[in-house]
């Protein structure tokens, strides 16, 4: 593994954390100040009554918006833009949705199992019309587990960068370079966890989250394929082009 000084790790943590905050779509304080409410029962019902394809389209749009912020985050991670374009695209194709799932825990309210969506807090029942209850349950469970770790923004930022810089993605041209960046990010994450006096188990718990994230993404791909098989024209004509590029 690379030799890195403490000062270098501090600097890396600072830069990644700043990039994360600059590109995180919603600041926690903003959401608190907005005093967002939960959806009322009749609002929940109106989401549930939406045609399946309309709800899918809405969620594809929200995911795409969130991913655009993740792309900006990636661009500001040290060394990411020095990778060849093939590898930048491979990493974003495989990792951008995973980072969206990580970021979800910032807008998750564990008291009532709701998540910020479409300007209010929504429980799993809001997403019923999608017709993929198992995926929604998995996403909420993940957000719940992730938020129970009570990571700081700096820790979340470094974990997001670590996931984005996964060196084991297929089709990377310069695996070694990505591996170096990922190792440095992991060292910075370890350094910050130690500095924050987190117990040793946290890093292991985060490692387990990596496989949970992959499983969520493959579930999403399966659900999308099943949806596309029934509504190919809706996907072709109404889904955001970036979403189709990433998951098509």
């Amino acid at each position: 593994s690379p030799t890195v000084s403490m000062a270098e790790l501090d600097h890396l943590a600072h830069v990644v954390s700043k990039s994360h905050l600059e590109t995180c779509q919603y600041l926690r304080e903003e959401l608190q100040q907005m005093n967002c409410q939960n959806f009322l029962q009749d609002e929940v019902e109106s989401y549930q009554k939406k045609p399946r394809e309309v709800m899918w389209q809405l969620c594809a749009l929200k995911i795409t918006e969130a991913i655009q912020y993740v792309v900006e985050f990636a661009k500001r991670i040290n060394g990411f833009m020095d990778l060849c374009q093939n590898d930048q695209i491979v990493l974003l194709k495989a990792g951008s949705l995973e980072v969206v799932f990580i970021r979800m825990c910032r807008v998750f309210d564990s008291h009532n199992n709701t998540i910020y969506f479409d300007r209010k807090f929504a429980g799993p029942d809001v997403f019923k019309a999608l017709g993929c209850d198992d995926l929604i349950t998995s996403v909420f469970d993940f957000a719940k587990n992730m938020s129970s770790l009570h990571l700081t923004e700096e820790e979340l930022a470094l974990f997001s960068a670590f996931v984005l810089l996964s060196a084991d993605r297929s089709w990377l041209q310069d695996k070694l370079q990505v591996e170096k960046l990922q190792q440095k990010t992991q060292l910075a994450l370890q350094h910050v966890l130690q500095k924050n006096q987190r117990e040793d188990g946290v890093l292991n718990k985060l490692r387990c989250k990596v496989s949970a994230l992959r499983s969520l993404c493959s579930q999403h791909t399966e659900k999308l394929s099943a949806f596309r098989a029934i509504y190919p024209d809706i996907v072709r004509t109404h889904f955001p082009p970036l979403y189709k590029e990433l998951f098509g």
Partner: peptide, 16 residues
Amino acid sequence: KEKHKILHQLLQNSTS
């Protein structure tokens, strides 16, 4: 490149 046109564009836009 054609396959990932939008991603290419997003990556090439200067960070704002």
